[in-house]
């Protein structure tokens, strides 16, 4: 059996981990924005799977990947509009509303898939990995980090964008203000409702993009494609302490640990009888990491509280 610590294997594991992390990252970045504004969206998984179907169907029928990404984005946006209407305007309880959205997305995508597609045919073309000129020719490092598809680059580029958005823009300050103390923000003339609606729309469209990333990487759709991925993304937001960098760390941790486990299985280092036990690793490591992190971070104070002006 070959060793794990050969350079080419490590390169492959890192690249694989980054690919696996991409949908988690997109979804958890979006959810981070939403939660910072005080809105919990447990419907991420449903949004993702429905957007994934939309992207798949567009790519399958029209073979236009950017249109597929755009359609997934629109589906995310549309669900965001519905979710904003329910939770911000109608003050519905966020936890349960999210579960409603999740169930709807799960069932509706499956329904459309069975009726419109049926046979799980792969899409005609997938997003090709692109080497970044210069960087991708760095030995080893280039293959690990700079030979991915555009969705992956985009997801990681979104991290500084979201940091900038939350920390340096007026909108970001408003988001944080309405997430911590909506009454005070309101008295300063910030529209709590509008800020939250925009935050929800951003978060939900990001979940849509995450669904597209999943489909354009795998090239296929099937019922419950996300397999609970959206819930893990919500967990990653908590793990990341409501910070974009934290979300990135959590997503990468989840993706890379998964990739390492697969690699160790492929090499036979992990015996087949323990294969299932090894599959626990990402979840166990996340919980352990959380035990060390917990207590040091604080959630947005107004998370899940609907705003009523007094």
């Amino acid at each position: 059996m070959s060793q794990f610590f050969t350079l080419s294997v490590i390169v492959s594991v890192v690249a694989s981990g980054i690919r696996l992390a991409t949908p988690y990252l997109l979804a958890s970045l979006g959810e981070t924005i939403g939660q910072r504004s005080g809105v919990l969206n447990l419907g991420v998984d449903g949004t993702m799977v429905l957007a994934a179907f939309a992207a798949y169907y567009t790519a399958l029928k029209l073979d236009n990947l950017w249109l597929a990404v755009f359609v997934a984005f629109l589906v995310g946006l549309l669900i965001g509009v519905i979710y904003a209407l329910i939770t911000v305007s109608l003050h519905a309880a966020q936890g349960i509303s999210g579960i409603g959205i999740f169930l709807f997305g799960l069932g509706f995508s499956d329904l459309l898939f069975q009726v419109w597609v049926g046979t799980p045919l792969p899409i005609p073309s997938k997003l090709p990995p692109l080497g970044i000129p210069g960087l991708s020719s760095i030995p080893q490092l280039g293959d690990a980090l700079f030979r991915h598809n555009l969705m992956t680059y985009g997801a990681f580029l979104l991290v500084p964008v979201v940091i900038f958005l939350l920390q340096k823009t007026t909108f970001g300050m408003n988001v944080r203000a309405v997430g911590e103390n909506p009454q005070a923000a309101d008295s300063l003339g910030v529209s709590v409702e509008r800020t939250r609606v925009v935050a929800i729309l951003l978060g939900s469209s990001a979940a849509g993009l995450a669904g597209a990333a999943l489909v354009l990487q795998g090239g296929i759709f099937q019922a419950n494609l996300t397999n609970g991925l959206g819930f893990i993304a919500v967990a990653i937001v908590y793990f990341g302490a409501w910070r974009p960098l934290g979300a990135m760390a959590g997503s990468l941790l989840y993706g890379v640990v998964n990739a390492i486990v697969l690699q160790l299985k492929a090499q036979g280092t992990i015996p087949r009888s323990a294969s299932d036990l090894a599959a626990m690793a990402p979840a166990v490591i996340t919980i352990l990491a959380l035990v060390f992190l917990a207590g040091r971070v604080k959630a947005p104070a107004a998370l899940t509280k609907p705003f009523t002006r007094h």
Binding site: I101, L103, F104, L106, G107
Partner: peptide
């Protein structure tokens, strides 16, 4: 499943 979601919402 979809209907369950809609009812809840």
């Amino acid at each position: 499943v979809a209907l369950n979601g809609i009812v809840v919402v």
